[in-house]
Design a protein around this nucleic acid. Structure first.
Lengths: 146, 146
DNA sequence: TATTGTTATACTCTATAACTATA
DNA sequence: TATAGTTATAGAGTATAACAATA
């Protein structure tokens, strides 16, 4: 009988499936907070003000899109465009007080995707955490190949 | 010092980050095959013919969207609409020969997301596979909460 | 000249509602 | 009456290209 996880192909597919399994509850969460997934991802990143150009890099989309995404978040009073003292071309995207509040609530809810983690024991969760940490690294996921 | 993975919250966030890390190379792959992510997900599932209604469930989107997605895949000659012998209301979505070929190529490339897996040892990959398998289950990811 | 953010444009994804043909 | 797929419509994400302000 074939051993599970014997090759990287199998693992990559599994990772893909696990990602799929995470997406569903994430999107449900977005709906609950009345945000689109990109809007949520953008807001979640705004711990500190970020140039719009950098936001495009984070979201991995063309900079022109950030305009619209920021517009819609701004309409809801969740973010604000601030000038950059160092470079007047740059606009910093910053979460408002309401934005920070929502961001914290969303992040807390994100931690509650327990249906996913309930299938594992405490020990297994610990091992999985360690492996995922090693895998996902410092957030510098595989880029530069597009 | 705080132990890694001591609570489910931390793990859920890690899972989310890992999913993010998988998305980038997946989308790059879609670009390479000149498909949108949904189109790719749809084609990847078409191992066997599938009612359009079921495809909507797989993609977790409204059934009305499947029309357009199928249209675009059909235009490229990758899928075909077939009648269902049992129920004449139903149309089965089936991959054409070209569709099956592309599906296999895509699936193979999907297994080559090695940058992600290269950070782990063979033993670690094996453990991770087992845990992910337990986590993602039989593909029946947490639904019913939207 | 190069870069930042915006605008205009076009395509795709997404949901809702109304429609048809079948059941 | 209910269900499968379509169509019409509208909002949002996405990329490309051209633009104004700034570097």
């Amino acid at each position: 009988m074939r051993e599970i996880g014997e090759d990287v192909h199998e693992l990559a597919r599994l990772l893909f499936r696990a990602a799929e399994a995470v997406r569903a509850p994430f999107e449900a969460l977005c709906e609950r907070f009345e945000m689109t997934p990109v809007q949520a991802r953008a807001l979640l990143v705004l711990d500190e003000p970020l140039p719009m150009r950098d936001m495009a890099a984070v979201l991995r989309c063309d900079p022109s899109n950030v305009t619209g995404i920021a517009d819609r978040l701004e309409q809801r009073g969740l973010v604000r465009r601030e000038p950059d003292a160092a470079d007047r071309r740059v606009k910093l995207l910053a979460a408002t007080a309401a934005g920070h509040k929502l961001r914290r609530e969303f992040d807390a809810a994100l931690g509650d995707l327990s249906p996913l983690t309930a299938r594992l024991s405490a020990r297994e969760r610990q091992v999985l955490s360690r492996l995922l940490l090693k895998l996902a690294g410092n957030g510098d996921c595989a880029e530069g190949d597009r």
